[in-house]
């Protein structure tokens, strides 16, 4: 079957079997390997992408049903090759990752939270990432990263220096 997917601002037309997941389509057909497979049954969140701006599990979405949405993967977050967003940089500052496997999902979850809430509490951050499992960090430095990014975005907006969140 043919399906047209709008991924990171570009429209792609793919020929896929109906059973192919969006996760596999992104990784194999589009070579976007930043989205990861952890369980393929919707629990771990390593496959998180944004669908119309909402965090969603790519392993629970069939590619043939993913037309008509704006899909964003982790590859869309960095403003340019070699540059990091404020949130990504905050993860580097607090060491909010170790192996990096769950990290794209965590960053997308944090990204969405910060768009909805510029001053999240610690509890709000914990809730926002509760669907993303991590085995390396124990979550502490991840929460620190998202809170740090929130602080920097608020300061940045206050100073009106621009820059993409």
């Amino acid at each position: 079957m043919q399906v047209s997917l709008h991924v990171n601002g570009t429209l792609h037309t793919l020929e896929v079997e109906p059973r192919l997941s969006l996760l596999d389509a992104l990784r194999q057909n589009l070579r976007l390997t930043g989205t990861h497979a952890g369980c393929e049954h919707g629990v771990c969140g390593a496959c998180t992408v944004l669908i119309d701006g909402e965090p969603s599990r790519a392993c629970l979405m069939l590619a043939v049903r993913a037309d008509g949405y704006a899909i964003q993967t982790i590859e869309a977050i960095a403003p340019a090759p070699g540059e990091l967003s404020v949130l990504q940089d905050a993860f580097c500052e607090t060491h909010g990752l170790q192996c990096g496997y769950c990290t794209p999902g965590m960053i997308l979850a944090g990204h969405v939270l910060l768009k909805q809430n510029s001053s999240p509490t610690r509890e709000a951050v914990v809730e926002a990432i509760s669907g993303n499992l991590c085995r390396c960090t124990g979550y502490g430095q991840i929460v620190d990263a998202i809170l740090l990014a929130a602080e920097r975005l608020r300061a940045g907006n206050a100073a009106k220096t621009g820059g993409r969140p």
């Binding site: 976007l32 390997t33 930043g34 989205t35 990861h36 993967t73 982790i74 590859e75 977050i77 960095a78 990091l84 990504q88 993860f91 580097c92 060491h95 909010g96 990752l97 192996c99 990096g100 496997y101 990290t103 794209p104 960053i107």
Partner: peptide, 11 residues
């Protein structure tokens, strides 16, 4: 961390 937060790991 830098390349991993950008989704540019090499797994």
């Amino acid at each position: 961390d830098r390349r991993l937060v950008a989704g540019h790991g090499r797994f």
